[in-house]
Structure formats: structure tokens, C-alpha cells
């Protein structure tokens, strides 16, 4: 069973619908008790860095996720959920993320922000997450902040103004800056891979 973290904001329904389409059993996780019933966790995206963290605390889910990460249990962070895995974000400078990866989410410098639309992800290391996908594939992005430098194990890179990290991994913890649940067949393939192979 896959749990999708419910922190009030986020596009929970899209992720749940994609998992349902793939016949991957899933449920919402709104409390620590819910989390005890699932084997894998997804932190979905959309919202602001600080607001997401305070909502997680309010629902007593911050510690649940923190412990989950420390125990290296299977987790996928999507978009904002990806950014929360880093140390900090310029979006909410006073807040601290889960810090599994070193690095700071910085405001994108380009003529149009947010970075919204389909952009190419270059897979720079082989991983079960990319099974069945070409070495470069388009995914759908919507974000105003990005990670340009990290010491983490980068699996995918994308260009928008500058090159940023679009896929990262540590043990069984994965993060993707794009929205696989909105990226057509390629996104569904990636979710299926994560659900069954990672």
C-alpha cells in the first residue's frame, strides 16, 4: 500500500488518480496512525515550502516523515515534496527541510518564472526508476524555485536558464522536481517503476 501525505495543500487527487489508473493500491495519509498502514510514502507537490512544513507539523506528520526518512523507507517527493528533502529554500528562509540532501532551493532566474510546461530530463545515472524510458524524456514542471547545487546522488538534470536537479536519490528516498502524475505516458511509467521496482 502506498500512502500519499495529506498536508491540506498539494494536488493529492491527481496523484491518487494516477496510482488508481496504474492499479497500485494507495490511500491518503493524514495522521501518524495512517502512516502505520502503508509501506511506501509519496509527498506530493504544490504550495509553499514554509506552509507545507507548518501543515505537516500541525497534523503531527513532520516527525513521521522525518523518522521514515531516517529509517530509509521507500519515499517519493514530488515537486514541493522534492524540495522539502533539502535543507532550506529561499521561499521560506527561516524554515528547515528534512535535509536528507545538502542544498538550498533557489529562485529560478529566467525571463519567465514559474518554469511551467514540458521540459527534458536527462537521466545521468542508470536506475530502476527509469526502466523502459529513453535517456532523455519530457516531463511536466511547475515551479519557481530549484536546486542548482547539491552533494546528493543526482539521477536527472534539466535546463532552464541554468541546469538544475530534476531527479535525486539516497537509498530508497527519491525526489523528482516535475509532476509524473501530469506527465502523460512517461510520467505514468515512472510512477509504475517507483511503485513496483524502487
Amino acid at each position: 500500500m502506498i500512502g500519499v501525505i495529506d498536508y491540506g495543500a498539494g494536488n493529492l487527487n491527481s496523484v491518487l488518480k494516477a496510482l488508481a489508473w496504474l492499479n497500485l493500491p494507495a490511500r491518503l495519509v493524514s495522521s501518524p496512525e495512517d502512516a502505520a498502514t502503508v509501506e511506501k510514502l509519496i509527498i506530493p507537490g504544490v504550495g509553499s515550502f514554509g506552509a507545507a512544513l507548518s501543515e505537516l507539523r500541525k497534523r503531527n506528520l513532520y516527525q513521521t516523515v522525518d523518522l521514515w526518512i531516517k529509517e530509509n523507507r521507500p519515499l517519493l517527493g514530488i515537486c514541493l515534496g522534492f524540495q522539502l528533502l533539502f535543507q532550506r529554500s529561499e521561499e521560506s528562509p527561516e524554515e528547515h527541510g528534512f535535509s536528507i540532501f545538502q542544498g538550498i532551493c533557489q529562485k529560478i532566474k529566467a525571463s519567465k518564472v514559474p518554469h511551467m510546461g514540458w521540459n527534458k530530463v536527462k537521466f545521468v545515472q542508470p536506475d530502476p526508476l527509469f526502466t523502459g524510458l529513453p535517456l532523455e524524456e519530457y516531463f511536466y514542471f511547475v515551479h519557481s524555485y530549484a536546486v542548482f547545487q547539491t552533494n546528493g546522488s543526482v539521477l536527472g538534470l534539466t535546463d532552464y536558464g541554468n541546469q538544475f536537479v530534476s531527479v535525486i536519490k539516497s537509498g530508497r528516498i527519491y525526489g523528482v522536481q516535475f509532476h509524473p502524475e501530469k506527465s502523460g505516458q512517461a510520467g505514468l511509467q515512472l510512477l509504475q517503476n517507483w511503485g513496483t521496482k524502487c
Binding site: 487527487n13 491527481s14 488518480k17 488508481a20 489508473w21 506527465s183 502523460g184 510520467g187 505514468l188
Partner: peptide
Amino acid sequence: ISEKIFIP
């Protein structure tokens, strides 16, 4: 539509 089509 959102149950079977996974684009924005």
C-alpha cells in the same frame, strides 16, 4: 477526464 488523462 482527470481519472484517465494524466496531463494538466
